[in-house]
Design a protein around this nucleic acid. Structure first.
Lengths: 252, 252
DNA sequence: AAAATTAATGAGCCTTACTCACCATGTCCA
DNA sequence: TGGACATGGTGAGTAAGGCTCATTAATTTT
């Protein structure tokens, strides 16, 4: 009823260091990221985060409304770091296959480089009720939309057939990547972002491409073969010329 | 230190109904399934399950080692129901496309019919550390393997091209389905298992099919390749003739 | 230097999973 | 029929961890 009554005490108290709000928040988030990464959400204890951040539990609740909000803030923070100069790289890449492959490879690389954070997002953050209100949701949507823009462009240009809902494409790419990286995220195996990106891009590209128009590298192979044929023919022509020269059919 | 001492009391106690172990376990699991479905894992309280099952908390711990084991048992129970006479239906279906489509449609239908249980599996069960030791993991693996068997057959027969790792196919199908059904599982929209199955099967099938075998204008590519081969042969023949002619090995 | 503001504290509250000493009911058998 | 035994069931109590808030301390403003 009348709880929370503090008793006056005069025990020696350790020196209290006061920091500007922004600094303290940054400290706590950094520590929280580490603890959440190591232990996962449920096993991480606010008490441990507080201790490692050099504050007391109550201090954390002064800056974050609860454990869940702390998790969300930590992940948002990380996510923004990751997305920095993402677009710039894409600008330098030409061709639908290459652009799709880049987006897929990039996503796989993020998982490969920061498995702990990705595990947090996949396993904990995304199942919280307010996920769709977080910045992570928004950022993620924005960023997968860039992949869909590539697909849309290819549909507009006639390279891809139309009629496949874009969201299904998104779901197959990112759902596929997620399931693909599971065992790695559990620490039960490795994967190569390069090889995996090739395999996934391959299925998606061929699943969407307009038949006969441009079967990616198959088309390229044919083109090169035709070039070879041309060169051989030219070579043959030259031989013919030589021959005709000898036989007096033309001026040499 | 010396806790857990029961005081003798003679207060009126409600009638205690004793049931055989199997019956009590079944009752508790049924109630637990309902409560977990309604509230999700973390918000479900053992106290509520106990009350609705007409027992006291301690009774539940007599039959289940903890909340997590209860969840696992509940989901295993449900999963086995679902998988009953699954194969029999597949037997009547012919053709790779139809068989794949059936497997995908079936999975989508399960999610559609029992969203609460699927949400439990996707959001809670699969992130627990001992997931890979559960029967659900094993059953799930077995059942997705049937999809891969269809793909493998098509590769063997030449309908599908080879070289794509089967597990990537699995991951894209089931990961795609999972992401596809998310918004529905959050209660934020509907989906049609039929239409979704068509779209997903479409991408997967065309992503795997050997170009030119079933894709109309792929024929075009083969024709051009054959033309190239012809020209190469003609060019080679001519060169050979010329060469042998020049070196006098044959009569020109 | 006093007042106001803001940072930080830490004892204690509250919920909830889980334990365990005991009690009740049914069955077997002399 | 009544004791022994097995098994179903209880509920008060503990532990752990998230969270609160009255109070205190450092810093800034006046």
């Amino acid at each position: 009823m009348s709880g929370y009554r503090a008793v006056p005490n005069s025990l020696p108290r350790r020196q209290i260091y006061r920091l500007p709000r922004a600094q303290r928040v940054a400290d706590i988030m950094l520590t929280a990221r580490a603890v959440f990464s190591e232990k996962g959400y449920t096993d991480a204890m606010i008490a441990e985060i507080a201790e490692r951040a050099g504050v007391v539990e109550g201090t954390i609740y002064r800056y974050f409304s609860g454990k869940r909000e702390l998790l969300i803030k930590v992940v948002e923070d990380w996510y923004e770091e990751i997305l920095t100069d993402y677009d710039r790289q894409l600008l330098g890449i030409r061709g639908t296959w290459n652009r799709l492959r880049f987006m897929i490879w990039r996503h796989l690389s993020v998982v490969h480089n920061d498995p702990a954070m990705c595990r947090l997002i996949f396993n904990e953050l995304r199942s919280v009720p307010e996920y769709r209100e977080t910045a992570v949701f928004e950022l993620n949507r924005e960023y997968t939309n860039r992949t869909l823009a590539i697909v849309q462009e290819a549909m507009d240009s006639g390279e891809f057939r139309v009629g496949i809902p874009l969201r299904v494409v998104r779901e197959m790419i990112y759902g596929g990547i997620e399931h693909h990286t599971w065992s790695f995220l559990r620490g039960e195996g490795e994967f190569s972002p390069e090889d995996s990106a090739d395999a996934i891009t391959d299925i998606i590209y061929r699943g969407l491409v307009r038949s006969g128009v441009a079967i990616d590298r198959g088309e390229e192979a044919i083109r090169r073969l035709e070039e070879v044929a041309d060169r051989l023919e030219r070579a043959a022509d030259m031989s013919e010329e030589e021959l005709s020269c000898k036989t007096g059919k033309s001026a040499c």
